[in-house]
């Protein structure tokens, strides 16, 4: 189990990248998604974010995802980095 105890960001707003912000949250996971490919990949992006949070044992966080068309493995990398940066010891 990991708890997000501080606001953390990862990634960039460059094309093919994604900027992820994680914030502490009281209950559950809340994801805000802004993506240039939302129509084509919205559900896939949400799934990637949720899966990485689950793998990292995070079950409550507010996640803000600003996606510039990042590939799935890039999204996963940025979420994981944000978790590493935001979680408590």
């Amino acid at each position: 189990m990991s708890k997000i105890i501080r606001r953390a960001t990862a990634g960039t707003l460059e094309s093919s990248d994604v900027f992820v912000t994680l914030e502490p949250h009281d209950s559950g996971v809340e994801i805000e998604l802004d993506s240039v490919v939302r129509n084509q990949f919205g559900p896939a992006i949400l799934k990637a974010v949720e899966e990485v949070l689950a793998e990292c044992g995070v079950n409550s966080a507010k996640v803000i995802v600003v996606d510039r068309g990042a590939l799935d493995c890039v999204i996963r990398a940025r979420v994981e980095t944000a978790v590493e940066r935001g979680k408590g010891e």
Partner: peptide
């Protein structure tokens, strides 16, 4: 590479 996009 990209995954299969949903077609609007």
């Amino acid at each position: 590479i990209t995954g299969k996009p949903n077609k609007p």
